[in-house]
Each structure stands twice: as structure tokens, then as C-alpha cells.
Design a binder for these strands. Structure first.
Lengths: 187, 187
DNA sequence: GAACCATACTCAATGATATGACTATTCCTG
DNA sequence: CAGGAATAGTCATATCATTGAGTATGGTTC
């Protein structure tokens, strides 16, 4: 019952179709959750049946029709109930970390390659998050925005995503350099 | 096929029983994976059937007998193959972030409470990881240890876990303070 | 000596997530 | 006008993860 609340939380920002949600969950909002389209369509169906969101058909002539969804009062209540019960912390679950754990007993070359690649990906995500943050706060300073705006949730989760990726990048770079220095490999 | 490799990676450090593994995966090694005992016992059974680990019975008189497992050459090869194929990055998946995303439309009080509680938990984990790191490197400096030891994998993943929890803690504290300042609540 | 805790492990059921293969429509490009 | 990309969505399945309830033994504590 977790994707459920993530979908509700995103739909607070406006009406979206399953397809639009899929894009949000794929690229931008990986700052707090990730899901593939199939999961989202299935979840939207369930949420609508439960009365937590309401969909309306939009007829389009230049492309296939779509259904836009909004959170109902019952949906908001569900979110409030969700926020009221203490949540359990979730830890990191990353294949790359498993590889590093075992790296002393393996050929380090492919692990180093993956670390370096991951550092680049993380750096790109940091930049993406920076752009999103700038866009969200407009021409206000961060301090002013966070004090005065009435929609800071997405900004705050984006900050967390940025911190995570920054930390990730630094670690990947450090570990890659270290492993390279220990066992010099070609390429 | 991910817990599978996490188990193999941990078993590189020595012989463990399912029960010991359960403790490792529960407390300390949350730096790169987490699993409950039932998952581990099931995975150990599968790994043994696949010939990737070998178990041996240990008869005990002061407590129930146990089975200790070690990685076989086939298991090491499996790990090497795992490390050779590029892995996909995994993102954060955290209920607390979902709550923060929605916080503008909810009563902030329970969210603030959870953020503050989480900051304390994260701080405790940072300290735990610091103790683990000190224990792993003995009386060497970090630099020397990382240059010269022949078992740095656990240290490196522990560093990542520490970074994650430190970042987590700072973010929780900042967001909690911010939300408190915006909507002063009792308690 | 009853209750409880730590060790050591198992079974069953459900729910969540991931993967792959599909159907349609329209626009744009070559 | 053929092919591909973007939009919009569906179906089926397999694996993974979570939850809850059990079994059994021995040691410790009140």
C-alpha cells in the first residue's frame, strides 16, 4: 500500500493521465518513488474503484483519448491517515553495492567501470534536480521560497533526491579511484 | 536475483548459519541490503540446491544444532558473472518522502514528528556505522587501511551507508525545523 | 517451576514489483 | 506512403517481499 500513496501525493499537484503519471514516475519523481507504467495504470484502476480518485474522459482529436484523474476528499483523507501512522525506514538496496561488498574476491575491472558510469549518471541527476529546483522556486531564493510558498512538498523531496545523488556520485568516484589505484587495470 | 547475490557477498566473509545471516541482514548490513529471516532461509535452500553454497551441520549441545554455509567455487563464479553485467540504478523508496511530498495539503504535525524521530534513528545509524568502520580498520588510518588491506569491500559499503544516513539525518532535521517554523504546532 | 528470552528454523498466504508482449491512434519525416 | 516516434493504455505472468503463525531446544530469571 505504498505506490498507492505516492500516486495520490503526485495527483495533488493537478490532473494527470496514466501516461503523464508514468513519465513523472519515470524521470522526474524518482526523487521519492519509481514505478513503471503498468503499475500505475493498475493502481489508478484500484484507486478509482476505491473512490480515492476520480477520472474524467477527455476526447482528443489530434491523439488518442485519455482519462485525467484528481484526488477526491476520500483520497485526501486516505493520505492523511497514511501520514498519521509511523512509517518504517527503508534502507538502500543496490546491486552495485553488493558488487562492491564482494569486490576483493572478484575481478575489479567491471566493478570499476560500473562505478564510473554510475558517477556520471548520478552527476546528471544532480543537474536535473538542480534544474527542477530552480524551476519550482522561480526567481525567489531558496530561503524565501521555503518560507513563503504554499507548495513546498515537491521542492523538499527534490532536495532529498539531490542530496542522495550527490552523495552517491562522490562515493562512486572515490571508490572507483581507489580501486583503480590498488589494482591498476588497462582501459 | 538480487538477494541471492547479497547473501553470497556476505558469505565471502566467513561461514554463517541462517540465523547469524538474519542478524547481519537485520542490523549491520543494512548498509547495502535488508532481508527478514524467512527470506534468508529460503534463499539459502535455493543457493544450496543450485550448488552455489555448501552447508555443513554443526551439532551443538548447549543449543539447537545449526548449519553453516560457505560459498563454493561455482558461487564465486556466479558472483563474478553478476558483477560483470551492468546493473540498473535503484532510487529512493521511502514512505516518509511520500508524506513530505503531500505535506502542504495535510496536517503537518504527524509528519514533523516522524521527521524528528527519523533524524534520531539516522543519527544512531551513523554512530553504528562509525563503530563498525573503526572496528574494520583496527588501529590503521582510513587511508592506510583502504590502500593496504585485502578486504575493503565491507568497509566501502559501510562508508556508503554512513553517507546515506548522514544525508538523511541532515535533511530530516532541516525539513522538520522548516515545517515547525512555518506552521507552529504544539508539542 | 513458570515465564520468558535467545537460538535455530519452517510453512503458508498475501501483496507488491518486475518483465514482456500487446493494441490503437495520430503526427512527423523521408 | 512507409516507417518510426509519441501518445494512451491493457493483459498476463513470474518473481520478490512482507506478514503472521508455528515448532523445538535450552538457558536464565523471578
Amino acid at each position: 500500500m505504498a505506490l498507492r500513496h505516492a500516486v495520490l501525493a503526485v495527483l495533488l499537484d493537478g490532473e494527470y493521465s496514466g501516461y503523464q503519471l508514468a513519465k513523472i514516475f519515470d524521470v522526474s519523481c524518482s526523487n521519492f518513488w519509481y514505478a513503471v507504467p503498468q503499475q500505475l495504470y493498475a493502481e489508478l484502476t484500484k484507486l478509482e474503484r476505491a473512490g480515492l480518485i476520480a477520472g474524467r474522459q477527455v476526447i482528443q482529436h489530434d491523439r488518442p483519448n485519455k482519462r485525467l484523474f484528481t484526488v477526491t476528499p476520500a483520497g485526501l483523507a486516505e493520505l492523511a491517515a497514511f501520514a498519521a501512522v509511523p512509517s518504517k525506514p527503508s534502507s538502500i538496496r543496490e546491486d552495485l553495492l553488493v558488487m562492491v561488498q564482494a569486490v576483493d574476491r572478484l575481478d575489479p575491472a567491471p566493478v570499476i567501470a560500473q562505478l564510473e558510469e554510475r558517477a556520471v549518471i548520478a552527476a546528471a541527476k544532480v543537474e536535473l534536480f538542480d534544474r527542477m529546483l530552480r524551476q519550482l522556486r522561480g526567481d525567489l531564493t531558496e530561503e524565501t521560497f521555503l518560507r513563503e510558498s504554499d507548495r513546498i512538498g515537491p521542492y523538499l523531496t527534490c532536495l532529498r533526491g539531490r542530496g542522495f545523488e550527490q552523495e552517491n556520485r562522490e562515493w562512486c568516484e572515490r571508490v572507483a579511484a581507489l580501486l583503480r589505484a590498488r589494482a591498476p587495470v588497462s582501459r
